[in-house]
Computed example of a mutant assay.
Amino acid sequence: MFSSSGNSSIPETAFSITAITSYIKNLLETNELLQLVWVVGEVSSLNPHRNGHLYFSLQDSQRGATLNCVVWNRQQSRLTHRPELGKKVVVLGSLQLYPQQGKYQLSALQVIDAGAGLQQMRLQQLRNRLEAEGLFDPTRKRPLPPHPQTIAVVTSPNGAAWGDIQRTLKQRYPGLRVLLSPATVQGEQAPASIVAAIKRIEKDGRAEVLILARGGGAVEDLASFNDERIIRAVAECKIPVITGLGHERDESLTDLVADICAHTPTAAAAKVVPNLAELYTAHRYRLQRLYDSVENKCEQKRNNLEQLRDRLVRGMQTRLNQETERCRYLGEKLSVLDPQAVLKRGYAVVQLDDGTIVRSIDSVKVGEEVTILLAGGRLRVKVI
């Protein structure tokens, strides 16, 4: 159906520009997939606006498609990376339609350098997920055995790391049993190879601790140790794991999940066993301390015995003096009471023949013989 207005015929179902633009705007801005989307492209134009907003365009270098973008003034301070002409970036934002010009644009919330941005973003997402599972929790970490006798090493048999570990272990703790479970530690085959090497150690069952090592290299060469397969194999390993992945500046996710992180193969080998020479020195020091302690204790006991002996001698001397004085006193008393002493003073003792002492004249009769005891002898007399 058409309606006539002058010389023009307009269909009744025709939309106004505003209506069709509003309809498309609503479809575009309410689509859940487009409300927050990552877009990769090269910055083909850059136009800072006088009101503080930053306008730029992203271009697909292979197919030539272009997308207009804007970073509003209030959002610019939160950007990780500012867009630069010719640079490949990853932009997080939401699609919006600008009705006045009938164009859509990406309202950017974050801009990341695509050189390392995507990889870093995926790494951070993996880290967050594993951390949420508790794989990096310090309470999960197990202590290393203090004096292991069998140590397993997962590394490349052709790398410098294996030689460094052998040399360090031999210098610090000779006589150890060291088991090598060879693995590829770089490239696409590394994750599967390392996981298989760890499984071999667990199946063997002899090792008390495992060293996962790789020599130094570029950060890109160490990317395998951010692989989820290796991380979970280390987390699930039945024996303590110490990593020595040859990089001081960066920490891989495998380092975070390991029981101990030593950064370099040599440092890992040094941490896994004590230094035998240091143990010997410490043992000699403990023996000397024990000897000194026993000697001090014996000296104390000798001093105590000497003091007790002195006290005993003094006590015995005092007691002896007391008893000597008592004996002297008793001797004097005995001397006073001694009948012989009385006789010496001129007295005499009269005895009957049966030895009875005459105490009264009534005890004897006239004509009876008695014995008189004197100091110098005896007299036999007759009572008249």
Rank of each mutant, 00 (worst) to 15 (best):
R177M: 10
P99W: 15
P138T: 03
T66V: 04
G115L: 07
E228K: 09
A262E: 03
G6Q: 14
N73H: 12
L308R: 12
Y173Q: 12
E236I: 00
D310E: 06
V313D: 09
Q101W: 15
L290S: 07
V257N: 11
G93Q: 03
S4K: 14
F15I: 00
L222W: 02
Q96A: 11
L334K: 12
R378W: 12
R74E: 11
S3Y: 11
T13I: 00
D255S: 04
L287A: 08
Q166K: 11
V40P: 04
Q351P: 06
I231S: 13
P11Q: 14
F15P: 06
N128I: 02
A183F: 10
M1C: 11
G315S: 08
L54N: 06
G163H: 13
R82H: 08
W72A: 00
A161N: 09
K238G: 06
F56W: 14
Q76N: 05
L253G: 03
R127K: 14
V154L: 08
A114Q: 09
G244Y: 06
N68A: 09
R345N: 09
S16P: 11
R328D: 06
C237R: 02
P157G: 04
I260G: 01
P146C: 04
S252L: 06
H147T: 00
V40Q: 05
E325M: 01
V209T: 04
R309N: 09
V370Q: 12
V257E: 11
R74W: 15
D60M: 02
T168F: 02
G159T: 00
Q105W: 12
V43P: 01
R50H: 15
P145C: 05
R214G: 02
T18H: 13
L36P: 05
D353S: 15
E368S: 14
T324M: 04
N275P: 06
V91Y: 08
K344C: 04
E295W: 14
V185Q: 01
T66I: 06
L109F: 10
S107I: 00
G217V: 01
S293T: 06
V70D: 15
E236T: 01
G102R: 13
K271D: 08
G64Y: 10
I384S: 15
A207I: 00
S57C: 09
R326F: 05
V383F: 15
S107F: 11
L290G: 09
D338P: 02
Q35E: 09
R63D: 03
G41M: 02
F136P: 07
R359G: 13
I151P: 10
A183C: 09
S335P: 10
S94P: 12
W72T: 00
E278G: 07
R63G: 07
P157M: 06
L33K: 13
S360K: 15
T266Q: 05
Q110F: 07
T168C: 02
P148H: 05
P145H: 12
S45A: 10
I357D: 15
A114H: 09
F2S: 14
I260R: 05
G331A: 08
L308Q: 13
I372E: 15
Q307R: 11
P11K: 14
D113R: 01
G93Y: 04
G159P: 10
D353C: 07
R172F: 13
R206Y: 10
K87R: 10
A262H: 05
L67I: 05
I17D: 12
V39E: 11
V40T: 02
M1P: 13
Q75A: 03
G134M: 03
L308F: 10
I357N: 15
S293H: 13
